[in-house]
């Protein structure tokens, strides 16, 4: 006859049941193993939290039409990443998940840290013209991934062309709450009003990333 102790399924042997030593030790060993395995699994999820990032593989020329130009949205989904006109942007995607984030594999519910960075040079500068970098979540409503610029949790950084030379760089970071399970992916979008000449983004200088922080957080 064994007596239960504690709340983890462990037991001790009654005075009148010395013959059950072996079985008792086996049961306790298995109960301890199960309790520790569950804890290890939780730590494993935390220590191996998912992340994904993308980087442009080749140089990008950002157009300079009458309204300026833009590139993006740069998304993890692997689509609609080209400039507003012209070919798509070859990118390198890296991640530590079983499969990359995509329309059929959306961001897992929880809270993510998201960020983007871009660096460029100018052929010719338009004084006081703006440059803007945004990073945001794209919703999936009713199973349909919404338009690229249908955003949630948008973060934006803006600067203006001054006397600092024909180059620039922007960086933005923020939180994305996917707890509701309706966020399909993350996008970054860069735009400018430099009408005097194209902007050139060298390989490796257009980046976006997302890192899972965990579930159950209240921001």
């Amino acid at each position: 006859m064994t007596d239960q102790i504690g709340t983890h399924g462990l037991s001790c042997i009654s005075d009148d049941d010395y013959a059950a030593y072996a079985l008792s030790m086996q049961c306790n060993a298995e109960a301890i193993d199960e309790a520790l395995s569950n804890t290890n699994e939780s730590f494993g999820e935390y220590l191996g939290r998912p992340w994904v990032q993308v980087v442009n593989s080749f140089s990008i020329a950002v157009s300079d039409d009458a309204a300026g130009g833009s590139i993006g949205p740069l998304g993890f989904v692997g689509e609609s990443m080209g400039p507003e006109s012209g070919a798509g942007i070859p990118i390198t995607t890296s991640f530590n998940m079983a499969t990359p984030i995509g329309a059929t594999n959306p961001l897992q519910p929880g809270v993510w840290l998201i960020g983007a960075s871009i660096d460029w040079t100018l052929a010719a500068a338009t004084a006081n013209s703006y440059r803007q970098l945004m990073v945001y979540g794209v919703r999936n409503i009713g199973g349909v991934v919404q338009a690229d610029l249908t955003y949630t949790d948008l973060y934006r950084m803006r600067d203006y062309q001054g006397d600092g030379g024909n180059n620039g760089a922007l960086n933005v970071v923020g939180f994305l709450d996917t707890t509701a399970g309706d966020v399909a992916t993350v996008n970054a979008f860069f735009s400018h009003a430099n009408v005097a000449g194209v902007l050139t983004v060298a390989p490796g200088d257009w980046r976006m990333w997302a890192m899972y922080l965990g579930t159950g957080l209240t921001i």
């Binding site: 960020g115 960075s117 660096d119 004084a127 006081n128 950084m157 600067d159 203006y160 062309q161 001054g162 006397d163 600092g164 030379g165 180059n167 620039g168 760089a169 922007l170 960086n171 490796g204 200088d205 980046r207």
Partner: peptide, 15 residues
């Protein structure tokens, strides 16, 4: 190798 960057450039006349 640069991985992230930010430049402040004032709008005309410097920062």
């Amino acid at each position: 190798v640069e991985q992230a960057f930010h430049k402040q450039d004032g709008g005309g006349g410097g920062i």
